[in-house]
């Protein structure tokens, strides 16, 4: 299981290393900052969708490995989100913070993206055991913010799309499916697909 976690860690780090290499090798085109910005943002969205697919996958397969990497993938999502924002600040605004202020007052897609990242920040800082203990029941409630963050991220992306909805539609469809799988009736059915017993029995067994 340690190996599994390490593999996921390396896999999540690889895109960053690849894009950094492309930029260093001069293969990222005439606007490398924009290249990083777009790739980091898209990577954050994919990681968010992957993170949200772990619980349904675990219910379906009963494999504990999916649960073990949930926090890690969540933190990776946040990290790529931070890289995305940092790229915007450094490479698009040229560290002109007054421009960021103006953007945050006027431009809905920036506001929405920023809000999503603030939510992910709240989830990242409370992702440790200590916070889970301290927050108790409220922890679960707080971490449902991730659903709102997903909606905001998709809206943020929607407002950036100009000429073709294809890619956005694929991500949005994935998001909708992952949300549907969380509706109690469907989620219970998911747990019953493979084993004959109900979900309650399965949780006992996995302990």
């Amino acid at each position: 299981m340690r190996l599994w976690r390490c593999t996921v860690f390396v896999a999540a780090l690889l895109p960053f290393l690849w894009w950094a290499w492309q930029v260093a090798a001069g293969q990222a085109g005439p606007e490398p900052g924009q290249y990083l910005l777009l790739n980091f943002g898209q990577c954050a969205l994919i990681l968010l969708l992957l993170t949200l697919s772990l619980t349904p996958l675990m219910k379906l397969t009963r494999w504990k490995g999916f649960a073990l990497i949930r926090r890690q993938l969540g933190l990776w999502t946040f990290s790529y989100g931070v890289l995305h924002l940092t790229s915007y600040l450094l490479f698009i605004l040229g560290l002109d913070f007054s421009a960021l202020g103006a953007d945050l007052q006027r431009r809905p897609y920036i506001i929405v993206g920023f809000a999503a990242l603030v939510m992910l920040l709240a989830l990242a800082v409370t992702s440790n055991r200590y916070s889970m203990k301290r927050l108790g029941k409220r922890w679960k409630f707080l971490h449902r913010l991730v659903y709102i963050a997903l909606a905001l991220v998709l809206l943020h992306f929607f407002w950036v799309v100009r000429a073709d909805m294809g890619q956005w539609s694929a991500y949005a469809l994935a998001g909708v499916v992952l949300m549907l799988l969380r509706i109690p009736v469907i989620s219970r059915a998911l747990g019953r697909i493979r084993p004959r017993h109900g979900r309650v029995a399965s949780t006992h067994r996995s302990r």
Binding site: V23, P30, E31, P32, G33, L36, L90, F91, I92, G94, A99, A102, D103, R107, Y109, W159
Partner: peptide
């Protein structure tokens, strides 16, 4: 533009060290 300012522009090619604004 409703989504960004048109007051300045990035003259390409630029680099990670300078937006060439």
């Amino acid at each position: 533009h409703p989504r960004w300012s048109q007051a300045r522009e990035r003259r390409l090619p630029n680099s990670l060290f300078s937006t060439n604004m």
